[in-house]
Design a protein around this nucleic acid. Structure first.
Lengths: 341, 341
DNA sequence: CTGAAAGCGCTAACAC
DNA sequence: GTGTTAGCGCTTTCAG
């Protein structure tokens, strides 16, 4: 005959610190110490309190504790999407690191065009996160002002901003575009196409690409912008739009590997030889670009590394350390040449 | 000459409800009413209070409010990963729906093998979420007991459990496997291979597939399990492992579209005709399976629909409505036939 | 090492 | 419509 470990739920009220204290015959404060600073309590008392905690199934109310201690042990994170491997891995590694340190992540997926960033920030800051991770720039001055007034550590990722609020882990998207252009130019191309999602970072990469092409005397034969986020379908359509310009050799830079894969796939369908007649470069180094055939040339960014670094930055500040020069870092990116260029 | 809208940060203490009340010449409670129940305050008072709120940049402390009202307006969500389009879209649609209703999502990415689900639940429940979304089964009895004792609405997604805690939106993974087997059998196959990730749901699909194959007199020539999560690379490797068995026609069921894409890609490399010599079926209906060439036969599941439904279920409960029979629903799935079968 | 008192910032419940 | 009082459940601070 198996008896349930706990009495049936006759008591519906959640057990609180005073219940545990009464059961263990100590003051509430002692229960609090057992949980938060165990080394300041005698072993015997600790044992008695622990037993009461287990027996009653006490789960401390961190909300109440946070109000009192003015520490929520929560951090907020804002990303435009998690549908893209890049941001998914940033979020995944960031929340793993934060959770490991005892912080819970409140995630906000803002989308690409944010109608009301002030409302979003209010909803987040109202929960009094101890720190904040935000993606890129493009927020309104009023919204940014709210962040500043919140007086919490903020790390911006994914984009170098002209005026970082606090900490920063990003790179210059225009520079990526310029380097891809230089890379393709060095491979002998002089006719280029551009396939970009309509978000500000992708557009910055496109701009950098266009300018570098112009500077070196190349031509842009097609400059196509599609609504963010980028998709394989957009890549295939883009390739079809490019067909009329393929009377001569050409190189295309896509704002993500998804698009690049779409271009390569459609090129194969249409009988366009890659890379001989059309060179393709993606962005993001997703598993797809490495594992599809032909493997696709792309730009690598350490998504997981960015998430971990962002967590490390915030945790250092949360541990009480002050600002440093090294709080603003450039994430290294590099072109990974594969079979499509 | 442009003056900053706010005075420089001389005051570092965060503004609270009493500050606003003093500035507007009303009681704190009135400020609270302006924010939470505006129709119970006269227009003149409202205007005065609003002005003070804006001028001081007041952001209500929802933590304190929550402690008092015993509502956190936060919900916790646990998913094994967000790296897969399926879960990414569930999380995305779920959090959009919840945010729309004023709830913030605390996201926990548990991974596939959870070493300590009790610690995870404690960390989450300690923040007193108003509701909880969890993925699948596989939690320890002690951990599940914590959920029950939390007395909050819980929705389980993605899996039908033998003993649902509360609400449920899922499907029977073994049944998916069985239906895929029947589908392939009807297409004349009698030799089968299986490529599964090592998580419990993928294994359930594999089991259903195997059993159905056995029942109808087919043969499993290869049954390969790889560590979760599934990847394109695992698909390519799986295909190479299958090569020795391809002296005769064969059909393979993969536990995700990523793997199926890997199989198809490697098959092309190896000169194995798809679907004539090898039929391939994936799972998940990611964009990749629809947009790659050849498009891949797969099983469709409404990820975004699941997230929305889960949110709707929880919101209905949070609005005070009681349990219903319809709180447990089967998500429809269906096989989408494309060019690989 | 342990306890008592006094809040944290807000809202429920009850006056007026 | 508005104000007052009394907590929410915990931790800070200060005494023992």
């Amino acid at each position: 005959m198996i008896e349930p470990a706990c009495a049936p739920a006759t008591r519906t009220a959640p057990v609180k610190i005073t219940d545990v204290a009464a059961a263990a015959g100590v003051a509430p404060m002692t229960v609090s110490r057992v949980i938060n600073t165990p080394d300041r309590v005698s072993p015997e008392t600790t044992a008695r309190v622990r037993e009461a905690i287990d027996r009653l199934g006490y789960v401390p109310n961190l909300i109440a504790g946070g109000l009192s201690s003015r520490k929520s042990r929560m951090v907020a994170a804002i990303v435009p999407t998690i549908a893209h491997p890049m941001f998914a891995s940033v979020v995944q590694s960031f929340s793993a690191s934060m959770r490991h340190a005892g912080y819970q992540v409140m995630l906000s997926i803002s989308g690409y065009e944010d109608p009301d960033d002030e409302a979003l920030f209010r909803a987040l800051l109202g929960r009094r996160p101890d720190a904040l991770l935000i993606t890129g720039s493009g927020y309104s001055p009023a919204a940014l002002q709210m962040l500043i007034e919140a007086h919490i550590p903020v790390v911006e990722i994914w984009d170098v901003s002209s005026r970082p609020i606090d900490m920063l882990i990003g790179f210059d998207h225009a520079q990526v575009g310029a380097e891809v252009a230089a890379f393709l130019r060095a491979k002998g191309h002089d006719r280029f196409a551009l396939l970009a999602a309509g978000d500000s970072r992708a557009l910055a990469r496109a701009r950098g690409f266009t300018e570098a092409v112009a500077k070196t005397g190349g031509t842009i034969v097609l400059d196509r912008v599609v609504p963010a986020p980028s998709t394989i379908a957009a890549g295939r359509e883009g390739m079809r739009a490019l067909l009329p310009f393929l009377d001569q050799r050409c190189a295309i830079f896509c704002s993500s590997d998804l698009m690049a894969f779409g271009v390569v796939t459609e090129a194969r369908m249409q009988g366009v030889p890659v890379p001989d007649h059309l060179a393709v470069c993606g962005f993001g180094n997703f598993e797809l670009s490495a594992m599809s055939e032909p493997p696709i040339t792309t730009v690598n960014l350490e998504g997981a590394g960015t998430g971990r670094s962002a967590a490390a930055f915030l945790l250092r500040r949360l541990a009480g350390e002050g600002p440093r020069d090294s709080d603003r870092v450039q994430v290294p990116f590099r072109i990974i040449e594969r079979a499509t260029t």
